[in-house]
Design a protein around this nucleic acid. Structure first.
Lengths: 217, 217
DNA sequence: GTCTATAGCTTGATAGAC
DNA sequence: GTCTATCAAGCTATAGAC
């Protein structure tokens, strides 16, 4: 039994939008790749924007639940939890999906990279789907970093988000820059490094008191 | 004396491409905003891609020299220089231009944000214009972080680049996320926080030995 | 659900007059 | 350098048959 055509449209659209952005792909290209007729886009999704919105939201729900559960698991072990564990709970789920599962997740994150950096409507779209979850994580980080300034916390998340989405954009720039030493699509390498990098940033900006009474200037 | 039309095209193109990306803007929209005829694009730049390339390169040269000079100034004072000073020399120049000078620099950095996150040809374009400069900075950081792993260094730069360009994309997401506490276009606020954030990340991943013989585990 | 057929418009590009 | 005029191709969207 072949895949439903609606599903084929979604898959190809996800793949192509991730590569070239909303305006860089036409409906005809999507439907040609999917082997279906253009008119089906109207039938199933209303129009191009409707197709795109459907792409964004269909995976967001499951993803949010999964990451929320990951945070719960950390907080059950200890609350306040160490910065590293909270950061890892946020990032872990994404990078795991990219490495091991269904390759269409990779397209989805590429899509999010496009949206996150879109100055026109990307901010609103990201907020709509992910801000409630982000607030949960920032609350946990706030407890991990007592006395921290709220604005610092939000800016740290901003830097984190930028580092993460550039990774998912998979531009292959680092391949050349590093002379072949690193690879843009080596998400295991990122996984190993992103959590300590970001955690150190949070601590540097937001950690007002050392945990122990060790001497420090 | 009115501005040359060639200049007006460049200005409007920069502004619009920064907002909506290469495929999101038509030549007619650019030339309408500039109050000139479409055919002038062909005359001055050959075609749409030629116009875009000209936008990328015309400011890159001056920018690279300025940042290279900033690095020289730091290294003259001390080599190896502290991580913070090297990171600051890279970032300082950009953020200064955005805060105080000609508003078109802001458009230019918005453009770079689009390019840096473009999976299709963005990596190549960024490399072409900026990799030599980046290598100079990474060399300085390598000396500041003796014994560090090269791959770690490149990935740190990658995270840095993502954080910086999401800032320049100016998506206004942080405005809503923070409930109005932070503003996407508040580059002074970023300036204050980006350098310590990124420096801490570099140290966390790349610093193999403490500078003093202070006790640590 | 799926297709044919097409309307109506915009796109990038360009030849040629001035 | 600048404009008028136009082209061929592409686009999204949709009405209507099956």
């Amino acid at each position: 039994m072949p895949k439903p055509k609606k599903e084929r449209i979604l898959e190809e659209a996800e793949r192509l939008f991730a590569k070239r952005g909303y305006d860089g792909v036409s409906l005809r290209e999507i439907t040609n790749e999917a082997g279906v007729d253009v008119a089906l886009v109207k039938y199933h999704f209303g129009n191009k924007q409707g197709l795109f919105d459907e792409l964004l939201s269909r995976r967001a729900k499951a993803l949010n639940r999964e990451r929320s559960d990951a945070l719960d698991a950390v907080l059950e072990r200890h609350d306040p939890a160490p910065v590293e564990e909270v950061v890892d709970a946020f990032t872990h789920t994404l990078l795991n999906k990219v490495v091991s599962e269904d390759p269409s997740w990779r397209s989805y994150f590429g899509l999010l990279a496009q949206v996150n950096n879109n100055p026109d409507w990307g901010g609103r779209a990201m907020s709509k789907h992910f801000d409630p979850l982000v607030h949960r994580f920032l609350d946990a980080l706030k407890r991990a970093l007592p006395g921290c300034d709220e604005a610092d916390l939000y800016w740290c998340y901003h830097f984190w988000s930028g580092a993460l989405t550039l990774t998912f954009a998979d531009t292959r720039r680092i391949d050349g820059l590093s002379g072949g030493l690193c690879h843009s699509s080596d998400f295991e390498a990122v996984h190993k490094r992103l959590v300590p990098f970001i955690s150190a940033g949070f601590r540097a900006l937001c950690q007002k008191y050392e945990e122990n009474d060790r001497e420090h200037h």
